[in-house]
């Protein structure tokens, strides 16, 4: 009976993995298709769609915008989110749990609602600059990831480490730079990774806040599919996928995937 249960749960786990990964495999396979339709490459592989990515109309500005917004919002979130997490875990503020919940709440909110809400809000206060509007919206997206990871990291962090640094000869700033930040490096890495990816592939919030000239890569990609559904998009998707896998592998080498997925301890 117990063995049967183990077999069933293993089967479920394997099936879930296959189910999640299958579309990615199909996309990757289709990107090597020699024909201009989304098809599995049965009659030989070709890299022609990869070479066409760069020639897509408005591709480079969209890519640059997405990277720029993702990097900037991640950096700002790291600073703000870490400080907020310190206040929440250390400050003994009244209602710090409510504060923590509020900080993480955008994670639970549908992106569409967030996007419409921000659009309405920007209009009502007369805020029309689309680039900074987009950055601000992405801060709302990335901050919860950073705050959540840093609250978890800091609640496990032993602040006597800083005192140990002081007694060994560190000044206060040295103790922060040489002890606290490196000791929290795994948390920083995980927070940045999640934050960057959340911003980079965001569609539902960005769609409400872009204009003709400021379009992020995910929005541009959907537009390409509507205009000309050829495997160029599959090729681009495969490159993004490969990049993500590379990032995850680096993070795994540095801190371990189980800690990242939150499945450890």
């Amino acid at each position: 009976m117990k063995q049967l249960a183990i077999i069933v749960s293993w089967a479920a786990a394997v099936f879930a993995c296959l189910f999640l990964l299958a579309p990615l495999v199909v996309i990757a396979a289709a990107s090597f298709s020699p024909t201009p339709v989304f098809d599995l490459p049965t009659g030989g592989a070709s890299l022609r769609w990869y070479s066409r990515i760069g020639t897509l109309d408005g591709f480079w500005p969209a890519l640059w915008l997405s990277v720029e917004i993702a990097v900037l919002s991640t950096l700002i979130s790291l600073v703000v989110g870490t400080l907020a997490a310190i206040a929440i875990t250390r400050g003994k503020l009244p209602g710090s749990e409510i504060l923590a919940a509020a900080l993480v709440s955008p994670l639970m909110m549908p992106g569409l609602v967030l996007g419409i809400g921000l659009l309405q809000y920007y209009r009502s206060v007369g805020f029309t600059a689309s680039w900074s509007g987009l950055l601000l919206a992405h801060l709302v997206i990335t901050l919860p990831y950073v705050a959540r990871t840093m609250i978890a990291g800091l609640s496990r962090f032993d602040f006597t480490l800083i005192e140990a640094g002081l007694t060994l000869g560190c000044t206060w700033p040295q103790s922060i730079v040489r002890v606290m930040i490196p000791a929290l490096a795994p948390s920083f890495l995980i927070a940045s990774l999640f934050s960057f990816l959340a911003s980079f592939d965001n569609y539902p919030v960005s769609i409400f806040l872009t204009d003709v000239r400021t379009k992020t890569l995910p929005i541009k990609m959907l537009q390409y599919i509507e205009e000309a559904p050829d495997p160029t998009i599959a090729a681009l998707s495969t490159i993004i996928l490969a990049g993500t896998v590379a990032l995850l592998l680096i993070a795994d080498r540095a801190v371990g995937l189980s800690r990242m997925a939150g499945t450890a301890e």
Binding site: D158, T160, L161, E163, A164, G165, T167, V179, P182, A183, A185
Partner: peptide, 14 residues
């Protein structure tokens, strides 16, 4: 001064 803390306070990154 040298301090040996109750939690040891060893640096995990080193």
């Amino acid at each position: 001064v040298g301090v040996v803390f109750q939690s040891y306070a060893l640096f995990p990154h080193l």
